[in-house]
Design a binder for these strands. Sequence first.
DNA 1: AATGAATGAGAATTCATTCAT
DNA 2: TATGAATGAATTCTCATTCAT
Lengths: 221, 221, 221, 221
Amino acid sequence: MSESSLSLRRPARAARKPRDLDREAAKKRRSRDKRDRILRAATRVFAKNGFHATRVSEVAKAAGVADGTIYLYFKSKEELLVSLFEDRVSKLLAFMREDLPKRASAPERLRAVIDMQLGLLEGERELAEVITVILRQSTRLMKEFAAPQFLAYLDAIAKIVQEGQAAGDFRQDVAPHIVARAVFGALDGITLTWALGRAEQGALGRAATQLGDMFLRGLAP
Amino acid sequence: MSESSLSLRRPARAARKPRDLDREAAKKRRSRDKRDRILRAATRVFAKNGFHATRVSEVAKAAGVADGTIYLYFKSKEELLVSLFEDRVSKLLAFMREDLPKRASAPERLRAVIDMQLGLLEGERELAEVITVILRQSTRLMKEFAAPQFLAYLDAIAKIVQEGQAAGDFRQDVAPHIVARAVFGALDGITLTWALGRAEQGALGRAATQLGDMFLRGLAP
Amino acid sequence: MSESSLSLRRPARAARKPRDLDREAAKKRRSRDKRDRILRAATRVFAKNGFHATRVSEVAKAAGVADGTIYLYFKSKEELLVSLFEDRVSKLLAFMREDLPKRASAPERLRAVIDMQLGLLEGERELAEVITVILRQSTRLMKEFAAPQFLAYLDAIAKIVQEGQAAGDFRQDVAPHIVARAVFGALDGITLTWALGRAEQGALGRAATQLGDMFLRGLAP
Amino acid sequence: MSESSLSLRRPARAARKPRDLDREAAKKRRSRDKRDRILRAATRVFAKNGFHATRVSEVAKAAGVADGTIYLYFKSKEELLVSLFEDRVSKLLAFMREDLPKRASAPERLRAVIDMQLGLLEGERELAEVITVILRQSTRLMKEFAAPQFLAYLDAIAKIVQEGQAAGDFRQDVAPHIVARAVFGALDGITLTWALGRAEQGALGRAATQLGDMFLRGLAP
DNA sequence: AATGAATGAGAATTCATTCAT
DNA sequence: TATGAATGAATTCTCATTCAT
């Protein structure tokens, strides 16, 4: 701060600009760092106490910033929660766009989805808890924000099933959207139990394999 | 009630005691009525606004009683939520105790569980929403109360799978507790989507059949 | 009142009246009994928990009556407290009217007042606590009701001092109203400590003698 | 404050730290100011309406702060009352520690205590009312907090009496703790009447002299 | 950008009192 | 008279958010 106020008093020189850019970048980096620090702290505290029982001041303390600082990066407490969710969902959607097309068959694609949904949280128990449990604590979030994205995700899975049925890889007598909901729910249930504490390291990976087997066999024509 | 009208025709002396009993009974009935009225109102309002966004006074208004009256029947707002849950869980556990033993094989028992978990909420969309979504809004409730019951339920399902494996009805290469979580999660996912509004009447019944088929085929040796 | 309304409907008979009177008397006795029961219960509970922390329902329970019954005998919770106070004050004022004139000299009258104020509560620790401590918990009571009576009492004591000074029994260089306040305060202080629990049986009697000695000697010309 | 204006004229480097210190000090001062403002407002409002009849919002309004601000400085409404009391008691105890030992004889010490207890409140009628009347309105406060301190104070007075008796300055036939209670009670009674409004300026001083005379003469051997 | 003191709206719960039976 | 279920006004305290520094 003192540095920048000093520079105001000096004549503008050509050399300034590159340095300013650097400075800008550093500032942005620092800013992003702080934002991340807050998000990580929020994950920790939300997972421990739940959304409503968590005070903004607790997140601030856990992040090592002042209460007011949170509001420089997030519009509200609820937006903190949204951001945690958005971050993961964007990764998930990116995956679906980039990775799925590489898989030749519907069965392969379905297995990939299963691996990914569980793999996304492996090693991040707290984040898993936030997404499976805490997220549902904000009604508005659930109805206005999460639901649409969630339904889009379900539709994407249903589409895989449909394609599999069209290609003769899956049985015809199950409704694609029912399978989609079941697959998602099964994965969510696994994650939930794991997040609630009754599961060991690597459990999600093993579960993914077994679930994949079971669903694919259950869907076999 | 019919008894009390009868007693009016009898000699006063003999009627004394029965009438008192009637009065007692009527009082108890009215009391239960009011309790139920409050519970039904709570289900409605909780489903609409979520637990935290619902004010006790709103429930009172919806039930047509004074704010304070709620506290004659429930210790706190949270206990209202617990009561809604307990009512269903007790039915569910009663079913598992009474009905399951009648089913000869593990596959039959698993299908019965699936039918029941979905059947329990068919036609009661608001209650379904309360149980799948709202319940998770109270962290304390989730951790202290619901979790233990939930885990007991999971264990019961896992036990069915285990028995099926022992009897040679199910494949050996899946962990019973993973199947249990997956089955529960799949059912919960179905209910959730249905509760959130994208499903028609009778959908849960059809879903139960298809899910049963899929899981049983997926588990077949 | 009920009597008069009754008599309007029935033919007046000579035999009726005595029986009615008996009935009335019995009723009044029972009524008084219940009133006393409530007052005694109130003393107990107020002394234990204080005025504000005591719920009317607690008094009702301690008295063995229904909540609503209290309101058949007392207009409000505060009136309960007033009644406890009035009862004692009336005894105190009766004493001052009847007993004091019998005492020949001012010193004798002052000693009598001291004996009486302490003697009034001896053996009734709970009542003493209510009067010294609890009474001050109701601001309205203190200001509107108790204060006037209290000041009247002080004036009566001051008058004794004044008479003693006129008769040459007391020193002239103390203001009568200051002595009055000091005497009352000293007695109240004794009672308070005793009520708060640090004093044994008979303590008030001994204290009265010593206080009497000390004040009389202090006032001697 | 004066320091910080000075520092503006000095070279910036050296000024750094002192200015920060100043800022800290100013902050602390402002904080203390606000705390005091709240305490003074509380005294005013409590004296007028009593403890229970006073709403926290009224104190806030009288102090010119927001309701919530009160809770930044005091844990609860009751703690506000405690703080008023503690402040005076600490002065009183400080006096007993510092001033009393300077007085040679027990009679001088007793008179000093009398002067002090009354002098402490002279000119602060509202505070006097809070301490003599309002304080007793919180049962918990009376029993848990005030009682122990109060008893310690009584013991200190009793000790003076005892020493006087040992030195032959006081009569032997009065129990020291009875005298202590009487002295305290007399002073409290004087204060109470004064606080309740029937006394003019300077009254406490005069009362102190007369009371001192009376007690000392009453205690003379 | 950062701070954290200050704000003040908001809500669960209590309990004196009423009144239908 | 007696009951006790029902009422609903009333109030403390919390905590997300703001804003002067």
